[in-house]
Design a protein around this nucleic acid. Structure first.
Length: 764
DNA sequence: TGGGGATTT
C-alpha cells in the first residue's frame, strides 16, 4: 500500500449532540443517586437544559497526572518500563493509600451506598468506570459489618488477571498480606485462607464452587462485577443466584424473610444500561448510580459513511496529529490484517511529515472482548502513540489522555453458535453492529484523564439505529461447557436473565452428551458421564481422555487434549512470514493430520533444554518449577517457540492444564503415564471416541460429508490435511465463514467406526 | 487458502 500524501479531507461535521444512554433515567426501577450533592445539581442542570452531553467534572476531581509534559522527549521513563495497569492508575503519584481511597468518586456516596445495600436483597450498581466501585464496595461491606462476623464477600470477575490484580490492590488498601483478609481464586492459582473475608474470583471458579455447595452458604455477599459483559457464564450465575436467594432468604413475601438464618445479598455491578435488565430480572431491584471520573468528551460523527475504514482511520489520525495538542490516539479495528496495514501506512506517512511535528510511534494492544476498562491499553509514549486494538466489538478509533477518539462503525465479528440440522451445529463468525452502550462506553474512555475527543467513523444516523445494549453471547464451546456442568450438578435452573429459552439448542446439547455416552436414553447421567464431568474439559475431550484408558495411551491423549483446551491457537501466523513459517513447521507435520502434529509440537517443546530427559524426569522437573534453573529453561523454550512460530503462551497454558488433568486422571483411575510409544492408532482411536459426532466421509466428488448430520464440510486451509483426500476424517470444530470449514482435522481409518459407541447409540 | 477474545473443583 503506497498511497500518496494524505489529503486533508474533512471527514467530520460539527460535534454531535449525543445523549449518553448511560445517564438516561427510565422510570421502571428505582434509582438512587449516591453521588454528592454538587454532582447531582450539575446533572440536573445539564439534563434540564435539554442539551446534555457528557458530564462536566468538578474541578476538584480533575487530577491530570501528566500535565502537559508530553512535549518533552522521553521524560516519562515509567511510561515505557512499567505499562501502568489498573493498580498504577488507582494509586496516585504520592498520596498515601487511605487518602487515595477517600479521593475516589465512590467514597462520597459511601454511607448512602451501604445503607441501600443493607436495605435490599439485591442491588444493581451502575457505576462508570473509574468510580472505584470494584475495589471499594467489598471493603465498605466488610467495614460496615454487612457480611456479619465471618461471612465471605465474593466478587466475580470475567478475567483471571483482573481478579488477581484487584485482590492485590485491595489487600494493600486493607494493609494485610495477599491471601489474608483479602484473597483470590482463579484456575491454577488460589490465594485465600481461613482469614479471608473478601475473595476476588473468576466467575467460572464460583460456578465450580456451586457444584460443591449449591447454596454458596459460606458467602454472605456475592458481587457480580462487569455483569454487562453478558457471557453465558455470568447469565447462568445470575440464574443460580436467583434460586439461591429464594432458598436462603425465603420468597420475600411474609414469614420466610425473618426466619432466614443465613441470608445472602447480591450486588450486580454493571457499566451500562443493561442495569435495568438486571433489575427486572431480580424483581425490580434497586439501581444505584455511582458517578465516575469522567471528563467531557466531544463526539464527532462522520458526515458520510466510510467504506474504506482503514483509509478513513489513517486520514483521521493525521488530521488529529497535525491539528490537535499532543496525546495518545487509540484506534480500534476489527482484524489483524487491518491493524497491520494501518500500522504500515502510518509509519510511512509519519516519515514524510514536515519537521516540527511530534514523532509517531505505534503499539499493538490486544483487548479482551467487551472489556470496559482502558488501563490495559495505556501504553504511554513520550510522543503521540497510536494504539490499535483488535477486538470484535470495538472497531473504533479511540483515544487516551486528552485525546481524540475515532470509532469505526460497523459490523463487529462475533462468534455464534448455529444449531445445525442434525449433527450438532457449528460456530460461525457473524458480523454484527456494535451497540450504543458499547459506543458510549468507548467514547467515555477519551475522558478518563481530562477532556477528550471521539471521532466515530460512522454517521450519526448509523449510531441512532444501533441496538441499545448487547445480548448475551453464546458459542458452541461455552454452551458445551455449561452443559457439562449443568448435567453434572443435576440440572440447574435454566432461567436466563433474558428469559429466552434456547430449548432446541439445549436438546442438541443433550443429544451430544447422549451420543458420547454421558447420558442414557432417560437423560440420566451415566457412570461414564460422571467420570467425564470430573474433568475440567469439554465433553468431547473428556470422552477421548477416558477412551485412552483401555487403549493405553493416556500420556499422548493428555498432550493433545491439553493443547486443545488451551485458549489460544498453537501456531503463530503472520502473513508477512508465511514461507518461513511453513518451512519451520514442516518438521512437526504428521501425515495423519493436525492432532498428531500437535502431539509432535508438544513433545518437541517438552524436550527443549532437556533433550536427554525421560518423561518421568521431565515431570519431576515440572514439579520444581520455581527454581532458578527453570528460568533458564524458560528463556530457552521461549526462543525455541519463537523460532518455530509456535505460540509459547499456549504451550505453557497447556502444560498447566495437563498438570491439573494428571491429578484428575489419578483420582479417576487413569494412569497418566500410560504410553503407546510411537504407535499412532490408539491415540487417533481415543480421539475418535470423543469426536465421533465430528466425523465425515469423503464423497465421490472429493468433498467431505458428515456422518451424523448431512453437512458438506471443507477442510480448513490452516490444517495440515487441507487439500488431502482420505476416506474418513474427524475434526475439532466447524467454522462457518464463507464456506463450512472443519478445523483441527485428522485422517482416520474407516474401520474405527465399528467400535465407536456413538454410532450404535445413534439409532436408539 | 483463512484467522474476535476470554474461562473451568
Amino acid at each position: 500500500m503506497l498511497p500518496s500524501k494524505p489529503k486533508k479531507i474533512r471527514l467530520f461535521g460539527s460535534p454531535a449532540k449525543v445523549k449518553s444512554p448511560q445517564l438516561k433515567r427510565k422510570a421502571i426501577p428505582t434509582w438512587v443517586d449516591v453521588s454528592d450533592e454538587e454532582d447531582r445539581k450539575q446533572r440536573r442542570r445539564q439534563s434540564g437544559g435539554g442539551k446534555q452531553k457528557h458530564q462536566q467534572q468538578p474541578q476538584a476531581q480533575s487530577t491530570p497526572q501528566h500535565p502537559q509534559k508530553q512535549h518533552s522527549q522521553i521524560s516519562h521513563p515509567q511510561a515505557h518500563s512499567t505499562p501502568p495497569r489498573k493498580k498504577a492508575r488507582l494509586s496516585g503519584p504520592t498520596a498515601p493509600i487511605q487518602e487515595q481511597r477517600r479521593l475516589l468518586p465512590i467514597a462520597r456516596g459511601r454511607d448512602a451506598l451501604v445503607q441501600e445495600i443493607r436495605a435490599n436483597e439485591v442491588t444493581v450498581l451502575l457505576g462508570e468506570t473509574g468510580s472505584g466501585k470494584t475495589t471499594q464496595v467489598p471493603q465498605y461491606l466488610l467495614e460496615s459489618g454487612l457480611a456479619g462476623a465471618a461471612g465471605l464477600i465474593g466478587i466475580t470477575q470475567p478475567r483471571k488477571v483482573a481478579a488477581i490484580a484487584l485482590a492485590a490492590r485491595v489487600s494493600a488498601e486493607q494493609g494485610t498480606p495477599l491471601g489474608g483478609r483479602v484473597g483470590y481464586a482463579v484456575r491454577f492459582d488460589e490465594r485465600a485462607g481461613p482469614a479471608t473475608r473478601i475473595k476476588y474470583m473468576t466467575d467460572g471458579m464460583l460456578a465450580r464452587e456451586l457444584l460443591g455447595d449449591a447454596l454458596l452458604s459460606r458467602y454472605a455477599v456475592i458481587v457480580v462485577d462487569e455483569a454487562h459483559e453478558r457471557t453465558l457464564r455470568t447469565d447462568l450465575l445470575l440464574a443460580n443466584l436467583k434460586r439461591i436467594l429464594r432458598e436462603r432468604n425465603g420468597d420475600g413475601k411474609g414469614k420466610g424473610k425473618e426466619k432466614a438464618a443465613n441470608p445472602l445479598k447480591v450486588v450486580i455491578m454493571s457499566a451500562t444500561l443493561d442495569a435495568e435488565k438486571f433489575s427486572r430480572f431480580f424483581s425490580n431491584a434497586k439501581i444505584i448510580y455511582v458517578k465516575g471520573r469522567q471528563h467531557p468528551v466531544k463526539i464527532f460523527h462522520s458526515v458520510q459513511g466510510q467504506t474504506d475504514y482503514v483509509d478513513a482511520a489513517l486520514r483521521t489520525f493525521f488530521q488529529i496529529h497535525v491539528d490537535q495538542p499532543p496525546g495518545d490516539v487509540l484506534i480500534f479495528l476489527p482484524g489483524q490484517e487491518d491493524i497491520e496495514s494501518l500500522e504500515q501506512a502510518v509509519a510511512l506517512f509519519a516519515r514524510q511529515l514536515p519537521a516540527g511535528h511530534a514523532e509517531v510511534s505505534c503499539a499493538h494492544v490486544r483487548r479482551a472482548p467487551g472489556r470496559a476498562d482502558a488501563e490495559d491499553l495505556r501504553l504511554g509514549t513520550a510522543q503521540r502513540a497510536e494504539v490499535h486494538s483488535r477486538d470484535q466489538h470495538r472497531r473504533d478509533v479511540h483515544h487516551h489522555p486528552r485525546c481524540p477518539v475515532c470509532h469505526r462503525h460497523g459490523k463487529s465479528k462475533e462468534k455464534r453458535y448455529l444449531a445445525g440440522s442434525s449433527g450438532g451445529g457449528f460456530d460461525t463468525l457473524l458480523t454484527r453492529d456494535i451497540t450504543k452502550s458499547n459506543a458510549m462506553q468507548r467514547a467515555g474512555r477519551a475522558g478518563r484523564e481530562g477532556p477528550g475527543f471521539c471521532y466515530r467513523l460512522y454517521t450519526e444516523d448509523a449510531f441512532r439505529t444501533m441496538a441499545p445494549a448487547p445480548s448475551p453471547r453464546s458459542c458452541a464451546a461455552a454452551s458445551r461447557g455449561a452443559c457439562s456442568s449443568c448435567s453434572a450438578s443435576g440440572r440447574h435452573a435454566g432461567a436466563r436473565a433474558d428469559g429466552r429459552a434456547r430449548h432446541r439448542r439445549r436438546l442438541l446439547r443433550l443429544r451430544t452428551l447422549f451420543l458420547l455416552g454421558a447420558l442414557d436414553s432417560e437423560r440420566a447421567i451415566t457412570k461414564l458421564g460422571r467420570a467425564m464431568a470430573a474433568f475440567p474439559l469439554e465433553p468431547a475431550h473428556a470422552r477421548a481422555l477416558l477412551a485412552s484408558k483401555d487403549l493405553a495411551c493416556t500420556a499422548e491423549v493428555l498432550d493433545v487434549v491439553s493443547v486443545l483446551a488451551a485458549s489460544g491457537g498453537l501456531f503463530v501466523d503472520a502473513a508477512a512470514q508465511r514461507t518461513g513459517i511453513a518451512e519451520a513447521r514442516r518438521k512437526f507435520v504428521h501425515p495423519s493430520g493436525d492432532h498428531l502434529t500437535v502431539l509432535n509440537v508438544v513433545r518437541a517443546y517438552a524436550a527443549v533444554g532437556n533433550e536427554n530427559d525421560t518423561r518421568e524426569e521431565a515431570e519431576e522437573r515440572e514439579r520444581e518449577r520455581e527454581g532458578a534453573e527453570e528460568k533458564v529453561g524458560r528463556s530457552v523454550r521461549k526462543e525455541w517457540a519463537r523460532a518455530h512460530f509456535v505460540n509459547e503462551r499456549t504451550l505453557r497454558e497447556a502444560r498447566a492444564i495437563r498438570t491439573q488433568l494428571v491429578v484428575v486422571c489419578r483420582r479417576e483411575g487413569l494412569d497418566p503415564r500410560a504410553s503407546c510409544g510411537e504407535r499412532e492408532e490408539p491415540v487417533l482411536l481415543s480421539l475418535a471416541h470423543g469426536l465421533a459426532q465430528n466425523a465425515a466421509l469423503i464423497a465421490p466428488d472429493g468433498s467431505y460429508k458428515q456422518i451424523i448430520g448431512q453437512t458438506v464440510v471443507k477442510i480448513h486451509p490452516s490444517s495440515v490435511m487441507a487439500d488431502k483426500k482420505v476416506p474418513a476424517i474427524i475434526y475439532n470444530e466447524l467454522v462457518y465463514t464463507n464456506q463450512i470449514y472443519a478445523r483441527g482435522v485428522s485422517s482416520i481409518p474407516k474401520s474405527f467406526f465399528a467400535s465407536l459407541g456413538a454410532f450404535n447409540r445413534r439409532e436408539a
